[in-house]
Design a binder for these strands. Structure first.
Length: 308
DNA sequence: ACCAGTCAAGGAAGC
DNA sequence: GCTTCCTTGACTGGT
């Protein structure tokens, strides 16, 4: 099964898209129009983003895809200097209703949901303030997954990079796990680690320092693995780290680009045949997934000799 | 209607 | 010890 990452290019063309607000902008609004006005603008955007998420999940259901929930649904909410809670906006009750609606609908649809907090969340950081921000952010994302009706298991994984390379790998992993143990159940039950496209965290090391000692499943990413290869563990081995169907990442390098890590718009190939769900990190999003399905169909037809 | 610059984050690399 | 890059899409303000 393929999975859509955060944005539907198809629905976006109809104006169904996320909104955001920067911290700087929030403070501008607060100074010019008062805090109630600023909070109201923010609440409108939070509510919009949740309704957009509802549409995207329904879209994925209709196409037979999974969906990666955006990590930017509630801009500013987890900013360290923001002193309000989600309950403080007038849209709070409606936000709760939308969460329940989605959870109820998806109980029938069964769209596999996941999330991927961004690269600035570093559980093993030696900078205490960065660790505190990370815990706050991960707990928030876990809460969003809870509210969307996700199971507290690797069926609805929260994928994270280690993003920390200095020193002994096992020390980093131990620090990572120590901090993880202080996070909410919604984080601990879902967190998986991803292969990185540079630095020490390839498949082999994640296996040795996260899977072996701690049983943490590993997210295979074909492009990262290509840029930062493992000697021992291939995609099939990595799939064995999961107690349920693995969720992997698929992308291709942007053609004619110096940086091999940049993601292409559209596919020219398909994921390998290891049994997994594949999140498609190609820039044209749902158009790219449809192209993958086409490529797959052509390959199958060729195998059956229909074009001979 | 369109475009260029802005914003947000932590880590790592290069000077 | 500083600067720059990495990443990304939406937003903002100017034309």
């Amino acid at each position: 099964m393929y999975s859509l990452c955060c944005i539907s290019e198809i629905l976006k063309a109809d104006g169904i898209k996320f909104q955001t607000m920067t911290w700087k902008r929030f403070n501008q609004l607060k100074e010019q129009n008062g805090v109630q006005y600023a909070l109201n603008q923010l609440g409108d955007r939070w509510l919009n983003n949740l309704m957009v998420t509802h549409s995207y999940i329904e879209h994925c259901y209709q196409n037979g895809w999974g969906y990666r929930v955006s990590s930017s649904l509630f801009p500013i909410l987890t900013h360290p200097e923001f002193q309000y809670k989600i309950q403080d906006v007038a849209q709070y009750e409606e936000i709760l209703r939308n969460f329940s609606d989605i959870a109820e609908r998806n109980a029938e649809w069964g769209v596999r949901l996941s999330c991927h907090p961004d690269q600035f969340n570093v559980l093993a950081s030696e900078n205490q303030s960065a660790v505190d921000k990370t815990i706050r952010e991960l707990n928030h994302q876990g809460w969003v997954m809870d509210m969307l009706g996700c199971s507290k298991s690797y069926k609805n994984p929260m994928c994270l990079h280690v993003n920390c390379t200095k020193g002994d790998p096992q020390d980093i992993a131990d620090r990572f796990m120590e901090t993880l143990s202080t996070c909410d159940e919604g984080v601990r039950s879902r967190l998986v680690v991803e292969i990185e496209d540079k630095g020490i965290w390839n498949g082999d090391r994640l296996w040795n320092h996260f899977f072996q000692p701690y049983g943490i499943p590993i997210v295979f990413d074909n492009l990262h693995d290509k840029c930062n290869p493992s000697e021992k563990r291939n995609a099939y081995d990595i799939s064995e780290t999961w107690p349920c169907k693995p969720l992997f990442h698929y992308s291709e390098a942007m053609p004619d680009q110096k940086n091999p890590r940049k993601h292409a718009d559209m596919p020219t190939d398909i994921p390998c045949n290891v049994r997994a769900d594949w999140e498609i990190e190609l820039k044209k999003k749902d158009y790219a997934i449809r192209e993958l399905a086409m490529i797959e169909l052509v390959r199958k037809s060729e195998e059956m000799g229909l074009y001979d």
